[in-house]
Amino acid sequence: MASPLTHLGDMPIEVFMRDYWQQKPVLIRNAFPNFEAPISGEELAGMALEEAVESRLVLENGESGPWELRTGPFTEEDFLSLPQTHWTLLVQAVDQWLSEIAELKEYFRFIPDWRLDDVMISYAADKGSVGPHYDHYDVFLLQAEGKRHWQQGPKVDESSPRVEGTPLNILKAFDAENSWVLEPGDMLYLPPQYSHWGIAEGACTTISIGFRAPSAAVILEDLAAEVAMGLPDSLRYTDAGSEPAKCPGEVDPASVARLQQQLGAWLKQPEKIAQWFGAVMTEVKYPDTVALDADDAVDWRDQLPQGVQLILNPASRAAFCREPATLFVDGEAFPAPLNFAERFVNIHKISWSDIETFPQIAGSDGLVDQLVSQGTLIYPPEDF
């Protein structure tokens, strides 16, 4: 298992987190010295033929107009019919299928696991691009093969004009503030909403390590519903001690301030918020990829004593909290011994020694049974 990075190039991680994370872009030359692409463009195209894999093709000059978007799965004929230049293949969640890509995530564990979304890989023909755009998430763009010319512009938002006639959010106007050519091992970090545009110089492969964050709308809607379920009907807006109304028809500032204070008090439930947050941040992105395999239905009680380990499904997500001691897996909360939960989310494995140390997780229909039955715990695939 790889170790988390202590430096990005010559920059200590502490400096990066203090001065750049979610604040401003930074280019890290030779972030991964002597880097070799873990997957070729041809292998990536092979993945895009599979129905279970999310893939897209972007053609700058498509049959239906500029910036045409095509969604997979694709066929070999689809690739053979592509032009020589100006197209890009994007494949999501490659880390769920290849151990070499999954291992890359280990280097970024200076950021909490539950913040990481997935690892997308793009292969671009010469001059291939997905156009000038911005994202709502943090991303590290690691150049894996070939060269890509990156331009970075200012922060933009939903009000920025878009190119019409395409489902892609292509910015109509783009003013570059920085420009770099990245080679294998170089890495560009971009915080949310910074406009950027990457154009291949010859064929190239780029690895995108993206980080998720729920929107304010999702937080307010989901958390409010979660907290509201536990509030009694008798708990209501109150205004004892208020002054006589000067204008009976007015929603006055004092009343608004009083409601804000009461809302804060109603939401002041850290344990409830932790339970909600842990579940939301571990929701699996592709539920169909977390499913019980027939081979995993074999009773693990016969396998673990023989030295076999159960591992976290590469498509699954896990986290824990201390108060109350809870293991979060794939959007579900499970009471669990704190020492076990902390160990499991760190190493993503269960062995017989864990069962001996924490026998309470091994009961009939207990934690391990539940995680095996839902496909969260599996026997290591050959590639992993």
Rank of each mutant, 00 (worst) to 15 (best):
V94T: 08
F32A: 03
E106D: 14
A31N: 05
L44E: 13
T71V: 12
D293Q: 15
N30E: 15
P4S: 02
A274Y: 03
Q269R: 12
P232V: 02
A176I: 11
P161D: 06
V308E: 15
F328E: 10
T75L: 11
L98T: 02
F108E: 01
R301A: 04
M1W: 05
A102L: 08
P253H: 08
L27I: 08
M17K: 15
S122E: 02
V290N: 02
A213Y: 05
E50L: 13
M120G: 06
I378L: 08
A224H: 06
E43S: 11
W87S: 10
S159C: 01
A333M: 07
A48P: 01
D293F: 03
H86E: 15
E201I: 12
D222K: 14
M47W: 12
K246R: 13
D330H: 08
S81E: 14
L142R: 03
L304E: 07
Q370R: 10
G241D: 13
F344I: 05
L220K: 06
Q152F: 14
V139N: 01
E226M: 04
T166C: 05
L367Q: 02
V94D: 04
I207L: 10
E158L: 07
D330C: 14
P359T: 10
S316L: 05
A216M: 02
C204Y: 02
L89G: 04
P305L: 01
V91M: 01
L89S: 06
K127F: 11
P324L: 07
T282V: 07
R162G: 07
Q370H: 02
T282A: 08
G278N: 12
F211Q: 13
V345F: 05
K272E: 12
A240R: 13
L116P: 04
H133C: 12
S99Q: 09
V94E: 00
P184M: 07
K24H: 09
F35T: 02
L82E: 12
L267G: 11
K155S: 10
L263I: 15
R301K: 14
Q374D: 10
R115P: 12
A52H: 12
D222H: 11
Q306I: 00
N61M: 07
E106W: 01
Y107V: 01
V290H: 01
Q370Y: 00
V372G: 00
A318P: 00
K349S: 15
K155R: 15
A265D: 13
E283F: 00
F74R: 12
A2C: 00
A93V: 07
G375A: 04
G131W: 07
K285L: 14
F384K: 10
S55W: 06
W352I: 07
R322M: 04
Y137W: 11
A257P: 00
P192E: 13
G366W: 01
T75Y: 04
V251Q: 10
T88F: 03
E177W: 08
Q275W: 09
K127Q: 15
A240S: 14
V15M: 13
L69T: 09
F358Q: 13
W21P: 07
L220A: 10
R236L: 14
Q262N: 03
E60G: 03
V163G: 06
L8R: 03
E356D: 14
W266K: 00
A274T: 09
W197K: 06
L59Q: 12
I199G: 10
M120P: 09
S81C: 08
L220Q: 08
G72A: 13
F140P: 06
Q275D: 15
T205G: 09
V218I: 07
